[in-house]
Design a protein around this nucleic acid. Sequence first.
DNA 1: GTCTATACTCTGATAGAC
DNA 2: GTCTATCAGAGTATAGAC
Lengths: 221, 221
Amino acid sequence: MARRIGSSGAQTADSLAKAALRLFARHGYAAVSMRMIAREVGVQPGALYNHVGSKQDLLRDLMIGHMTEAMKAFRAQPLPEDPAAALEAFTRFHVRFHIDRADAVFISYMELRSLEPENFRAVERLRQEYEGILRGILERGARAGVMHAPDPPVAARAIISMLTGVTHWFREGGRLTARQIEDIYTDMVARSVSARPAADGASAPDDTPKDTERTACSTQA
Amino acid sequence: MARRIGSSGAQTADSLAKAALRLFARHGYAAVSMRMIAREVGVQPGALYNHVGSKQDLLRDLMIGHMTEAMKAFRAQPLPEDPAAALEAFTRFHVRFHIDRADAVFISYMELRSLEPENFRAVERLRQEYEGILRGILERGARAGVMHAPDPPVAARAIISMLTGVTHWFREGGRLTARQIEDIYTDMVARSVSARPAADGASAPDDTPKDTERTACSTQA
DNA sequence: GTCTATACTCTGATAGAC
DNA sequence: GTCTATCAGAGTATAGAC
């Protein structure tokens, strides 16, 4: 228990978190063993348990850490009153924040199923809170008549899926800079809920969805 | 080797594929064991190897089967000449086809990294072929001036990410019917590359991207 | 705080009887 | 074609020396 001279626990803990993040993102939680992480960190497998309770704890801490950091960073910037400006702020924030943290995003998006029920609920709560921000913007925009969002919950998810997908293929030093990607996505998102219809107005549903074919239950997470 | 009276290999093989599909989608390839699959099928673990060479073969066959089926189904329908109509056809096809095969889509999207290099290349080739269809539509639309797609490769990926995301949350019997989802997504996709700018034209990049900040390499898969 | 050593379970895959 | 039995190795996690 006592710390010996020459030990460097804080450093190991940090390098452990970094290694787990990288490996989980690359191979997936289930495909990564504590032995692999230990090898990466440069310690024996058993030594990891001085810093983390279990492999599951490691995943949970990474995910909750990422989500809370995202929420905090978003709230640290002012959210414009104007819905269109707010949407742009959200989009730019999301793309920029996530491009810089591709590994953490990837994990948070893909490894929900690897969380044990209790941890899942905690993370899911944060995810819904974040999604709620975007939904709120769309609802305000639709009410104000400056946006076309027949179904804000669905639109919010569609937009977040689109934005988060960037982490699947973006690589630093590729054909486009992060800023260019940000511009392209911002443009597409703004248009996707634009109050102006698409060119030929092929089959845009009305702003007030018809009740036909509606069913009972609520859309679930 | 000889088939005995009372055996039912074809049925087992079918139920094996179905069980693997379901379990891989639910828990992830790495988290699913052959023993779990065997239990689901109702045979002993060793018996699985009468129908499949390895766990990896099972994944590869599921993914390639899904992708080729998708390509074949898409090509079985006529693709309109008009870019906007083609985009709508693509969107509706994608959403409809994928909503009915949520498990296969989920696997094809998430388990690329679980494929061994050779299998990965085979699947990736099919994926790019499919993405190329959408990219082609966007390029035609942009050339014809009826679509705004500053960067068709990025736009194609963004749209596919958005559409594929539906499998993350859609459940039969939820608040919305599949047809309603299809309508909403079709509308959003059409608008996202609409030639008409978003309401206030906040910061839409030009159709001809500026060369500033461009870097050398090509966008990678 | 890290080490070595280990407990115990599970893994993918195979061999041979039937 | 399925069974039982088994292999060799890897999985998470713990115990106790230092």
